[in-house]
Design a protein around this nucleic acid. Structure first.
Length: 562
RNA sequence: UGUCCUGUGGUGUAAUUGGCAACACGUCUGACUCUGGAUCAGAAGAGUCCAGGUUCGACCCCUGGCAGGACAACCA
């Protein structure tokens, strides 16, 4: 877990690291750093969560501390075990370990209840019997004060009694809540007697029907941090306004030891995609993608299936940095990170995605040669694979042009190119079909130019496969899910889905060199000159399925665009 | 016309706490190349939201603006 990050000068700290360093120097946290990653198990994790995971676990690692996994499971109607499991799987896959510290806010329900009772006894909380609408209406607006609840000054004993009966299930949902008694005129809406408990007769995935009152986020979260001895409670910017409440609860409870403190950072935004749970859900449920792990989704499971590596995602998280200002990260940075990893680590393979037949007229009929091809030029120590070569081959259709522009380095009539790992060939003529399409390209080869020999050089090198030896595979060519940088930027009445890229998935039938046989789902390769690909779980014994993780940078395509 | 937060190249993050701005992605050259990949060398691109002030000196401190964001679930 030690990727180097060259995106910042050595020794420069982000604002959280600066705070922690100072706390450690001043002994503010008993010399400890203890963070937590607190997902609500109500959905799948995405790349934005990955940033938070890397941050929280990363800080703990960097400062020799600990990071807990804590499920914030205080709303049983939205949460489930399925999500708990997927979240655990994703965090582990990313390479982080919470050891035995797998916690649940629901583990603290009893303690939380006792703490609430103590607050009532202090006159700092009361049972309010207004309806939800009344409470909302009575809260006022940010610029006008709220109205005092008629129940606000009821006797402590009465609140105590009713609160207990709420717990015992004597009242229907929505009939009563426990509220903190703070300040209905506060300019901070969250301080206007916030709800601490609501009645929900709902089955919880862990506590079953033991409870029918459930704590609200603001009440549960800070106290859970306190119970777990968290030192630095790191969350995203939208909770900034909650911080006074976070502190108020701690101030008004008799807490001992180190108090947790909350710090906020700006969440990750990525262009050319959407990140909100609601929109992601819409894509899944509307069938716009094939599930949460569709390789085009920015979910962790989607990226995994797409072929991203944990190391690439960790490197990405490092490079995006941590700060308080809103940001939009360029998708190109994510792509850079996976290419950087896979260039170094993925074995090479020859695969023709859009084949056209090429016949070497002067190559002996029926002859086959096994040619040596390096597995990975970045890691020569990994050795070689053998690739069969014969008279009839396939090359990429767009590697041939009858009438090439001046800077076309590939094959055209009368021109020479090298076939990677094989020979230099020269195009002699082409055979066309009745529509004028190219059916066969006829070439001659120069036996003196076999790969490995020190021979003359030609400008272009092509990938190819031997027709009789190639293995057919389904290749799913993925591209960005959206056409535009900000898919949510739509005209009146428009929808973010209007910005979807119609070509985000194109399927090809690829021909791959036979050494691909025996590969298993999850394995990653570079198809030379084409891109990085990963074997999809949809693969069967009969047919491999590849997902394109990322294309190779293509300066020829870029040049053509101009 | 409330409270809180944030404004640094196209994007993101720095500037060791006051010494005229660095790194990464991206872009553009060129070299090299049996991947138009990778690699290597180089370039362009901000004078730090604006206006005042303090100071020998301000991205950094002060004052006042402006802009953007968050907050009015019995969601988290």
């Amino acid at each position: 877990m030690k990727e180097e990050d060259k995106s910042k000068p050595a020794g420069s700290l982000n604002f959280l690291e600066q705070i922690i360093t100072k706390d450690l120097e001043e002994g503010n946290t008993q010399g400890r750093v203890h963070t937590r990653f607190p997902p609500e198990p109500n959905g799948y994790l995405h790349i934005g969560h990955a940033k938070s995971i890397c941050l929280n676990f990363g800080l703990a690692i960097k400062y020799n501390g600990k990071c807990n996994l804590r499920f914030d499971d205080t709303n049983p109607t939205k949460e489930s075990l399925e999500y708990v499991n997927s979240i655990k799987k994703d965090i582990r896959w990313l390479g982080f370990d919470w050891e035995e510290r797998e916690y649940y806010a629901s583990d603290y329900f009893e303690q939380l209840y006792e703490m609430a009772v103590s607050l009532i006894k202090k006159g700092r909380a009361y049972v309010c019997e207004m309806s939800g609408e009344e409470i909302a209406a009575g809260r006022g607006t940010p610029s006008t004060p709220g109205r005092i609840s008629p129940w606000r000054d009821r006797p402590v004993e009465e609140s105590l009694d009713i609160f207990e009966r709420m717990r015992n299930g004597e009242f229907p949902d929505g009939s009563k809540v426990l509220r903190a008694k703070i300040d209905m005129a506060s300019p901070n809406m969250h301080m206007r007697d916030p709800v601490m408990y609501r009645i929900m007769h709902a089955k919880h995935h862990r506590t079953d029907d033991n409870w029918c009152i459930y704590p609200m986020y603001d009440w549960a979260h800070g106290q859970s941090d306190y119970i777990e001895n968290i030192t630095h409670s790191i969350c995203t910017l939208e909770f900034e306004v909650h911080r006074p409440l976070y502190d108020w609860f701690l101030d008004n409870l008799d807490v001992a030891g180190t108090r947790p403190r909350q710090f906020e950072f700006a969440r990750l935004n990525l262009n050319y995609t959407v990140m909100s749970k609601r929109k992601l859900l819409e894509l899944v449920e509307g069938g716009y993608v094939n599930g949460w792990d569709d390789p085009r989704m920015p979910t962790i499971s989607g990226l995994r299936r797409r072929g991203y590596t944990p190391a690439a995602i960790r490197a990405f998280s490092d490079k995006v940095g941590v700060a308080k200002r809103e940001n939009v990260i360029d998708m190109a940075l994510l792509e850079h990170c996976i290419r950087e990893d896979l260039n170094k680590n993925a074995e090479r393979l020859l695969c023709v995605l859009d084949p056209v037949k090429l016949i070497i007229d002067n190559y002996p009929e029926g002859q086959t040669e096994e040619l040596e091809a390096i597995r990975n030029p970045e890691r020569p120590e990994e050795g070689h694979r053998m690739v069969p070569f014969s008279k009839t081959l396939y090359i990429e259709r767009n590697d041939f042009m009858e009438d090439p522009p001046k800077k076309f380095f590939r094959l055209s009539p009368g021109k020479e190119v090298r076939l990677k790992y094989a020979y230099i060939i020269k195009c002699e003529n082409v055979v066309k079909d009745e529509n004028g399409g190219i059916r066969e390209i006829h070439c001659t080869y120069d036996p003196e130019t076999k790969s490995g020999k020190n021979t003359r050089k030609v400008k272009g090198t092509l990938h190819w496969v031997s027709a009789d030896h190639a293995v057919e595979a389904e290749v799913r060519l993925y591209d960005r899910l959206f056409d535009v940088e900000d898919p949510t930027d739509v005209p009146e009445g428009g929808d973010f889905k209007d910005n979807m890229n119609p070509a985000s998935l194109q399927t090809a039938s690829g021909l791959i060199e036979p050494s691909v046989n025996g590969s298993a789902p999850g394995e990653r390769y570079q198809f030379e000159r084409t891109g990085y690909f990963c074997i999809d779980p949809d693969s069967s014994d009969e047919k491999l399925v590849f997902n394109r993780t990322a294309s190779l940078r293509d300066s020829w395509a870029k040049m053509n665009k101009k």
